[in-house]
Structures are given as C-alpha cells and as structure tokens.
Design a protein around this nucleic acid. Structure first.
Lengths: 253, 253
DNA sequence: GAGTGGTCTAGACCACGGT
DNA sequence: CCGTGGTCTAGACCACTCG
C-alpha cells in the first residue's frame, strides 16, 4: 500500500537531469550567465561527469546552452530568426541580409553538385564562398556553385583571389533572368572548414540549406549553405519576428 | 629525418573513425546491410566502445546509419525528400501527403502557442494531432492548434475522440479563407510522445517546423510539426526528386 | 536466453582561453 | 599558469528484439 510506484518506467538519468536543468535555466539563470563547471554540476547532482555532459549536450542541441572550451557553459539567448526567403525570391543578394563574399575559385564539382546542376562532372565550375553574419554572430557559411557555361561573362573575370573576385562572379550571375528557386533543408554536421567559419568545433550540428537557382535554360547555380543549428531558426515568410521559446513551443494535447 | 610529422594537429579519434567508416559505407556496404556489432567494431579499430559510439552517433545524425536496440546497426537509405510546401499554399490537406489524423482535444495553449496565435493564454483552443507517413515510414508528428474563436462551427463538433474528431475539426477549419502562411524550421529533440509516434527514442534529433496560418482576421491556426531529422530532407518547391548524397553535397572549393 | 544497442561509472589526459 | 570543456578508456549493467 504505502509503496508508491516510483520509476516503473525508469527514465534515463540524463533525461531527468535535462528536465531539471531546463527548469533551473528558466527560473534561476539569466541569458549569458555562466553555469557552474561540469565537474561541480556532476557532483551536485550525484552523477558521473559523462552523464551530466549527455544532458548538457541535449540542451545545447536545443539552443538553450552554449559551451566553449577554456571558458565555460553559458545560458544561450533565444535562437536568431534568419530569413532564407520563400520560393522564387531572386538571386543571392550582395550586401543584404548579412552575406559577405569571401572568395571565389574554379574547379571540378563533386558528383552531387554536378547532379544538382545537371552538368558533366568533368566540366569546370566556379565556386563562391560567402559568410553570413547576423548581429555580430556568424550564422552561416555558403558555397555557391556556378557552371562556367551558364554565365557568359564568367571566364573574363580577372579579379585577384579574395572578396573582390567573389563579388565579380555574383555580379555576372545577376545578369541572368531568374525563373524560380528550389530549396531543401536537412540536418548535417559541420565540416572542418565550415566549423571554422561558424566558430564551432567540427561535427557541430548544422542545418544544410540547398538552393537551386533556375532559369529558362535549367539550373543556373546551386547554393549549399550551412547554418548553425544551435543558434538559428530558419524562417520562410514573416515568422522571423516572433519570439519562440524552444521548450514550450510544443505541448501535449 | 625519418620522422614524418604525424598528427601535428591530432584529429580526434572519433572524427577520424567517422571518416573511415563513412568511406567503408560507400564502398563495402549496401543499403540495409547490418554492420558488425559495436563491441566488435571497437575491437577491430582498437578503440573503446564509447569512442566508436561517438563516431556512429555522428553518422546516424547525418542519416548514414540507423541503429535499433536489440537489432543492430544498419546502413540507412538516402534521406526521404518530404515536401512541406512553399509559402502560401493552403490549409493542411486531409488525406494528401501522407497525413493521418489521430485525435483532437480541447485545452489551454502553452504560452508560446498563445503568443503565436495572438490569443489570451487563458482562452481554450482545439488541438489536432496528426501523423505523417511516407513509404510506410513515420516521418512527422504534428500538433495543430486552433483557437476556439477563429472557427465558428468548432464548438458544435460532437464526434467522439479519435480520428473522426480530428477530421471534423480540420473540415471546419477549411471553411475559412486562407490569406497566407508563415513558416520556420529549427533543430529540436523529440519529446517522449512524439518520439513514440516517430518510432525513435526520446531526445532523438528532429526538425521542428512551425507554421502560422493567416486569414484576414489574423492567425487562424498554428501547426508545430516535428520531422525525424535522421531520415528526412525537407523540401520547399520541386527539389524533392533529386538525389542528394549526404556526404559529398558540400565540398572544399 | 542470447545478442544487440542504450545508459552509466570513475577515472585519465588533452586543447584551449584567460591571467 | 590554472580552470574550462573535449576526448578517451575499460569496464558494468539495463532494456529491448528475436528465435
């Protein structure tokens, strides 16, 4: 009788821990505040550090925490709403939306890019690297692939490597008349070079946005942008303004 | 002299392991094939099981692997492209696109939902639960929130709990004239109930798609859909057909 | 019951950021 | 230099699936 049915379906420790921490974050901590270090938190909750870390990992994945080696764990601000534009907007903008051209180069496409572009894998393409910064924070790294054949003026570009060359390619690209766009979003993990641009460790979770730019002739360019999944909320339309608290967005009915 | 500079920037073991495994998956394994178990793989690569698991975790996050307790680790098929519709499509379809109504209930909104709907947190709303199935696989679980005030016929619904009631609410909803939509995508982790519908463990990575349905009167409904991040690629437009191999989509220029 | 992945422990050392 | 989070180990036990 007196026996209450405790843990009949024993919740994993890290899961329970995550819940407890999540509530503590809401109530007892302000954005930017530093949490006690992992060893102390683990001791305080009576678990191994690895278990505590599993809980922190989840919370970081949900955008609640930010961890930096050598510094500590801080409470993350709400995710930034970054607009990625509805279908059929237009060419990639130059200065707008925080995009910053980094460099451009010529080379062979990967099989997947060749397939997306609908070109011969052996044909040379131009690749523009851009970075997107919002409110001082790097949020995305992009590779924009343009087949040499789709833009006439491309081969004439003689700007030296660097932002100037990237801008030149983009300028040529915008001469074309755009018919529409195609977009897909999936989860990925940051490659070493992207991670560096995003100020994260390799393998960090990212949202990979693949965009096809279509003209009457077919696919004129393909962009693959990797957004920081921990700090970003991709918006299509006007939802960007609204504050969404990550944890109570969804509810049991 | 004879000393080659090995590991001058020592790559983490699990990262290197991931690369090796990734290549092995491309070359030596077919989709659906079962890998050796974790203990054997760890032994074969000379690492602790935890380290091996860290590599597997990443590969699963990228949609390359599928792990099921009691069964084993299998090679995952390419991600399913699931259409989530461009901005301004229309009301949620009933039978189309694999959506299946599950249930409907009345209750109070969470603060976040109330904010998205622009209603008083104390007002009662209807919540419809739906599941989306594609090619026999559950890919998404959705909660559709409808304020009682926005649809006149809603209070007259007397269908018993279950799919019939859900269909009734959707039917009433479709009477309204839709002005547009708003959408955002972010990373999250599956709540226990969603995880069950998606056939995953709680905490599994999901893509949370929040949609606002707008009429002349304001926000008529809000949908929060959680898609399996491991198996799904969300598509906006016509990109759904194209095969994208997860790993070589992005390249160094 | 045998075999699988999932959780957890108690340590150790490393890489990085600030002082 | 110290303190932080990041990696890694070698175990143990649990929960699940299936024959």
């Amino acid at each position: 009788m007196g026996t209450t049915q405790l843990e009949s379906v024993p919740e994993p420790k890290y899961w329970h821990l995550k819940t407890v921490l999540s509530e503590a974050l809401d109530q007892d901590f302000a954005v930017g505040e530093i949490l006690p270090n992992e060893r102390e938190l683990a001791a305080r909750f009576g678990v191994a550090r690895a278990t505590l870390r599993q809980a922190l990992e989840q919370l970081e994945l949900e955008g609640r925490l930010q961890r930096r080696r050598g510094v500590g764990t801080t409470v993350a601000p709400p995710r930034l709403g970054v607009a990625v534009g509805g279908t059929g907007r237009g060419w990639p903008s130059e200065a707008g939306e925080g995009w910053q051209p980094v460099d451009a180069a010529e080379g062979l496409p990967t099989p997947a890019v060749a397939r997306l572009l609908g070109v011969d894998p052996q044909s040379r393409i131009h690749t523009v690297r851009r970075t997107r910064v919002t409110q001082g924070q790097p949020v995305a790294a992009e590779l924009l692939h343009v087949p040499g054949g789709s833009v006439p003026g491309l081969s004439a570009i003689d700007a030296p490597a660097g932002p100037a060359r990237a801008r030149a390619v983009l300028r040529e690209l915008r001469r074309l008349e755009l018919d529409g766009q195609d977009r897909s979003v999936e989860l990925g993990s940051a490659r070493a070079d992207d991670a560096k641009e995003l100020d994260r460790l390799p393998g960090a979770p990212v949202l990979v946005v693949t965009t096809r730019y279509l003209t009457a002739d077919g696919t004129a360019a393909v962009s693959v942008a990797t957004y920081r999944a921990d700090t970003c909320r991709l918006t299509f339309g006007d939802l960007g303004d609204v504050q969404i608290h990550p944890d109570d967005t969804r509810q049991a009915s």
